[in-house]
C-alpha cells in the first residue's frame, strides 16, 4: 500500500510542474491564451476595456434597431427601464434609478452591455457597436457630445454624477 502511494507521488513529481495543483494534483494550468479567451471583466477604472470605439451618433442607429423596442425612444423607458436622469431623481417617494441618476462608474456600463445586451441575443453586438451604444446613453444624459469618440481611453475618464452616491453597510441598524 505504502509502495503504491510512493509510486503515485513519484509519478506526480515526474509530470510537468505546470500541469497540476501542488497538493491535490488536479486541474490544468491556465495559459495566458486561455485567460484572454475567457476573461471579459471590465473594472471601474476601465481595466479590461478592449480596442474599438464609437460615437453617440453611430449609437443612435444601433439603439433604434436593437434597444428601443424594450427601452423606449431616446432611452425614455418602455417595458424596461429608461436611462436618463440625475441624482436628484433618487429623492422622494418614486425614485428613479437610471444610468444618469444612479450608476457610479461609466466603464462597467460597457461591460454590462457587452455581456448582457440585447436581452434576446446577448453578445450579438460588435465592440464598436457597444462603444457607440454606451456613447449614445451617456450623450442622452448630457455627459458627452454627440460626436465624442468613446474608447478604452476616454470612457473611464467620464465622471458619473452619482459617483459618490454609495455608502458601506452599517447594519445592524435597528434596536
Amino acid at each position: 500500500m505504502l509502495n503504491s502511494f510512493r509510486l503515485l507521488a513519484l509519478a506526480a513529481l515526474s509530470l510537468p510542474v505546470l500541469a497540476q495543483s501542488p497538493t491535490y494534483h488536479v486541474g490544468r494550468a491556465a495559459t495566458p491564451a486561455d485567460i484572454a479567451a475567457r476573461d471579459i471583466t471590465v473594472g471601474p477604472d476601465g481595466t479590461g476595456l478592449p480596442a474599438g470605439e464609437g460615437t453617440a451618433a453611430e449609437g443612435a442607429v444601433v439603439y433604434a434597431n436593437r434597444c428601443e423596442e424594450c427601452h423606449g425612444p431616446e432611452g425614455r423607458g418602455a417595458d424596461q427601464g429608461g436611462f436618463i436622469g440625475k441624482p436628484a431623481d433618487l429623492l422622494g417617494d418614486s425614485p428613479k434609478k437610471t444610468v444618469g441618476s444612479y450608476w457610479p462608474y461609466a466603464a462597467p456600463l460597457w461591460g454590462y452591455v457587452d455581456r448582457a445586451m440585447p436581452f434576446d441575443r446577448p453578445g450579438e453586438l460588435t465592440r464598436d457597436q457597444v462603444y457607440s451604444v454606451v456613447a449614445y446613453i451617456l450623450h442622452l444624459n448630457g455627459l458627452i457630445g454627440e460626436n465624442d469618440k468613446l474608447n478604452a481611453e476616454t470612457l473611464p475618464k467620464i465622471q458619473m454624477p452619482n459617483r459618490d452616491g454609495f455608502v458601506p453597510d452599517p447594519r445592524p441598524d435597528t434596536p
Binding site: 433618487l90 444612479y102 454609495f166 455608502v167 453597510d169 452599517p170 447594519r171
Partner: peptide, 13 residues
C-alpha cells in the same frame, strides 16, 4: 436606496 439619495452597497448578509 436611502431617503437622502445615498445607497448602501455590498449589503451581503
Amino acid at each position: 436606496l436611502l431617503p437622502d439619495g445615498k445607497a448602501r452597497q455590498f449589503t451581503f448578509d
